[in-house]
Simulated scan of single mutants.
Amino acid sequence: MSDQKKTICIIGSGNWGSAVSKLAGESALAQPDKFEERVNMYMYEENFEGQKLTEVVNQKHENVKYLPGVKLPENVVAVPDVVEASKNADVLIFVMPHQFVRETCKRMKEHVKDTALAVSLIKGFDLHPETKGKIAMISNLIEDILGIDCCVLMGANVAPEVAAEQFCETTIGCKTKEQGYLLKSIFEKPYLRVSLCMDIDTVEMCGALINVIAIGVGIVDGMGQGHNTKAAVLRLGLMEMVKFGELFIQDCQKITFFESCGMADLVATCYGGRNRQLGEAVVKSDKPIKQLEKDILRGQSFQGPLVAKEIHEILVERNIVERFPLFEAIYKICNREMEPTEFINCLRCHPAHKFSRKARPSMFFY
């Protein structure tokens, strides 16, 4: 990356995208020698109380629909055209539902600087006929379409708490120290501490799988179970995360699971994330997932059910479904193929409870 001033663009404008725009806008103002002042935020246009949402955001400097009550810096500008928003950017911050990334990148492809750096804050996998039976990272999808490097940022970062400047940590997975330090200068604040990690794929995988486990915790809440049961879901979920990494991530480093992207994000998402809300709602309501999204999220998407489906399809393709009973049970409950009451039986019979004296290739028994 050159020493010229960098232009920042955020691709996405939900509650997390808006919180990130606050971080980026403040950093651009605080470091005028490093960043251009204006920060574009691509926002899918929609109406809000009879006005275009982009116009409301630019007038009030607040995302009144997805992050109400939080003032955004005045140098953050909502732009409804993704090409217009991103064409001059040196740093592209992707924070949008993962199912829309492919088409969005295709629209941007001919207009992005070939020297730009992307960073994905997106939790999910890319399921495509070409990647059947494989883990396809969203960061790799961005790289393949745009022809630029893509780092990742994952951590225990519940958006309203970050926006309220409550202390937290996060993890940036990067390819070089230079990339990591550039991104750190955008995201790090006195209340947001950033760690750099070269284990990009594991960092990104953690972010995707955690949303599925959070649904499991919500199922437990919906059934009226207590903290002990939730702790079991977190423990067994973490074990399946590590097992998944061992099978699908080349050179997966177990220490990465102890970064903010791993254990910390697991705790934060399972106790404060919206996918936990979904798990509880699935137990208490017979409505389909799409209707629950409309009722709970006001237009945003639950990523957990989509990732659960993607995991299921990968495990079926590899014929190893039985090795991940927690993930599989959550998928079936979301798909209304299993009664939520069966979830406790899944925990009770989990293979992690079995003891083996045989030599084992992994850190766990099953």
Results as ranks from 00 to 15, higher is better:
residue 286 D to N: 15
residue 68 P to N: 02
residue 312 H to G: 04
residue 41 M to V: 00
residue 338 M to H: 09
residue 245 G to S: 15
residue 70 V to L: 02
residue 247 L to C: 08
residue 358 K to V: 01
residue 298 R to K: 15
residue 23 L to Y: 09
residue 315 L to F: 15
residue 345 N to H: 10
residue 282 V to P: 04
residue 58 N to C: 07
residue 312 H to K: 15
residue 164 A to S: 13
residue 176 T to G: 04
residue 212 V to K: 00
residue 54 T to V: 07
residue 303 Q to T: 01
residue 260 S to A: 00
residue 40 N to G: 08
residue 214 A to P: 09
residue 9 C to P: 12
residue 358 K to F: 01
residue 106 K to M: 03
residue 164 A to W: 01
residue 313 E to S: 15
residue 32 P to K: 13
residue 189 K to Q: 15
residue 255 I to S: 14
residue 133 G to A: 11
residue 78 A to H: 02
residue 72 L to V: 01
residue 56 V to G: 02
residue 3 D to A: 07
residue 158 V to S: 01
residue 172 I to C: 09
residue 153 L to D: 00
residue 287 K to A: 13
residue 207 G to K: 11
residue 340 P to V: 01
residue 148 I to W: 09
residue 231 A to D: 11
residue 132 K to P: 07
residue 180 G to K: 02
residue 204 E to S: 15
residue 33 D to N: 15
residue 363 M to H: 06
residue 355 F to W: 02
residue 164 A to D: 06
residue 302 F to Q: 10
residue 339 E to P: 01
residue 29 L to M: 12
residue 132 K to F: 13
residue 308 A to V: 08
residue 104 T to H: 02
residue 202 T to D: 05
residue 192 L to W: 02
residue 364 F to S: 03
residue 200 I to H: 07
residue 28 A to T: 15
residue 348 R to K: 07
residue 64 V to N: 02
residue 98 H to P: 06
residue 231 A to M: 12
residue 118 A to H: 05
residue 19 A to Y: 07
residue 305 P to W: 14
residue 44 Y to C: 02
residue 62 E to Y: 11
residue 88 N to G: 03
residue 14 G to C: 07
residue 313 E to A: 14
residue 337 E to H: 09
residue 272 G to S: 09
residue 178 E to C: 06
residue 50 G to R: 13
residue 155 G to D: 12
residue 197 C to I: 05
residue 186 I to E: 08
residue 240 E to G: 12
residue 77 V to S: 03
residue 146 L to M: 08
residue 48 F to V: 11
residue 216 G to H: 06
residue 60 K to M: 13
residue 202 T to S: 15
residue 184 K to H: 04
residue 232 A to M: 09
residue 297 L to E: 11
residue 287 K to S: 06
residue 181 Y to S: 06
residue 203 V to C: 08
residue 358 K to M: 05
residue 206 C to M: 12
residue 293 E to S: 12
residue 309 K to T: 13
residue 237 G to R: 03
residue 254 K to Q: 10
residue 114 D to Y: 03
residue 242 V to N: 09
residue 260 S to C: 04
residue 128 H to L: 11
residue 145 I to C: 03
residue 172 I to Q: 01
residue 348 R to H: 09
residue 156 A to F: 02
residue 30 A to E: 15
residue 213 I to H: 03
residue 356 S to D: 06
residue 118 A to S: 14
residue 154 M to H: 11
residue 98 H to M: 08
residue 71 K to L: 00
residue 215 I to S: 00
residue 272 G to N: 14
residue 91 V to R: 01
residue 342 E to N: 13
residue 59 Q to Y: 05
residue 28 A to V: 10
residue 8 I to C: 10
residue 208 A to R: 00
residue 274 R to Y: 11
residue 61 H to V: 03
residue 214 A to D: 09
residue 335 N to K: 13
residue 293 E to W: 14
residue 285 S to D: 05
residue 234 L to T: 05
residue 224 G to L: 13
residue 207 G to P: 03
residue 356 S to M: 00
residue 100 F to L: 04
residue 274 R to K: 13
residue 164 A to P: 10
residue 321 V to H: 08
residue 304 G to E: 04
residue 261 C to K: 07
residue 60 K to L: 13
residue 281 A to L: 02
residue 127 L to G: 09
residue 321 V to C: 14
residue 95 V to N: 02
residue 276 R to N: 15
residue 117 L to C: 04
residue 316 V to K: 15
residue 261 C to S: 12
residue 16 W to Y: 10
residue 226 G to E: 10
residue 249 I to Y: 06
residue 180 G to R: 05
residue 339 E to I: 03
residue 30 A to I: 01
residue 225 Q to G: 10
residue 215 I to M: 00
residue 270 C to E: 07
residue 103 E to M: 04
